[in-house]
């Protein structure tokens, strides 16, 4: 039974990783073939760094991800606080609207935002689809994730600290910044990280709201539509390595933290973990 389940786990991981391994393997292939090996090369990586289209798309993607995840975090945190204090009916309505971008198929969200931006552009001549509309669209689909990661932390928060701060003479805004924000910080940070990764990865909604601006996923898509160059394999490999090292760093930090905690509180540490 044990052995059987180990084999099964292995098979599923094999299924999940073989395509990625194939991509990585052929990024070092000397010819353009995607199935015949003809010697080792790094030329696709070299060409990748000279490909102006990819580099500018990469910078667009990063700018959009930073701006929209920050915007989503600020607006989302404020919204989470506000929603907590709403009366039941309003709260329910607002939460249902909040969840819409998560429940709706991505393509519907993308199409509806495209209609909005085209409408605004035709009526008022502002917000030509491009960088700005991408940021607005990304902020919109990231917002529910921020709210959903901040709200549980708010629920667990100790309200008396906020009240105590006010009793001691803090203005409400100061008390909020000093007593509430630090308590919900883990939720805010994980919401922001999630927003950032969702934004970097998004293709469908960007595709409909980008106009002529290109993000990395859009360039990847246009590359797969044309005669494909192994540059795309090189790009995949680099992205995979970046993600892998990010995860390793995060995990390594966690491991270090846990061992530190264990070292300082030997009796409690075991229970806490």
């Amino acid at each position: 039974m044990k052995a059987l389940s180990k084999i099964y786990i292995f098979i599923i991981f094999f299924f999940l990783y073989v395509p990625i391994a194939v991509l990585v393997f052929f990024s070092f292939n000397n010819s353009k073939s995607r199935s015949v090996w003809s010697g080792f090369t790094l030329k696709w990586y070299y060409r990748l760094f000279q490909n102006q289209q990819i580099l500018s798309a990469l910078s667009n993607t990063i700018i959009i991800a930073i701006v929209s995840s920050l915007l989503a975090t600020i607006i989302g945190t404020m919204a989470a606080v506000g929603i907590m204090n709403m009366n039941k009916l309003v709260k329910k309505t607002v939460m249902n609207i909040t969840n819409l971008p998560m429940v709706n198929p991505e393509i519907v969200t993308g199409v509806s935002l495209m209609l909005l931006f085209v409408f605004i552009y035709n009526k008022f001549g502002i917000l030509k689809p491009g960088m700005a509309t991408l940021i607005l669209a990304h902020t919109t689909f990231c917002l529910p994730y921020v709210i959903l990661s901040v709200m549980p932390k708010l629920r667990l928060m100790d309200v008396s600290l906020y009240e105590a701060a006010q009793d001691l003479g803090c203005a409400p805004a100061v008390a909020f910044g000093k007593a509430v924000i630090p308590q919900v910080m883990p939720g805010i940070l994980s919401g922001m990280m999630m927003a950032f990764t969702l934004s970097i990865d998004d293709f469908v909604i960007s595709y409909f709201t980008s106009g002529n601006t290109q993000t990395l996923p859009i360039v990847i898509y246009s590359m797969t539509r044309k005669i494909v160059s192994p540059e795309i394999n090189a790009l995949s490999t680099m992205l995979f390595v970046v993600v892998l090292s990010l995860l390793l760093i995060v995990n390594f930090k966690q491991i270090k933290e846990i061992s530190k905690r264990k070292a300082t509180t030997p009796t409690k540490g075991v229970n806490a973990n």
Binding site: L23, F26, I220, Y221, T224, L239
Partner: peptide, 14 residues
């Protein structure tokens, strides 16, 4: 965490 376009592209080549 890998873009799904790339994952699908991998199957294209396979």
């Amino acid at each position: 965490w890998m873009n799904f376009l790339l994952r699908t592209y991998a199957w294209m080549t396979i």
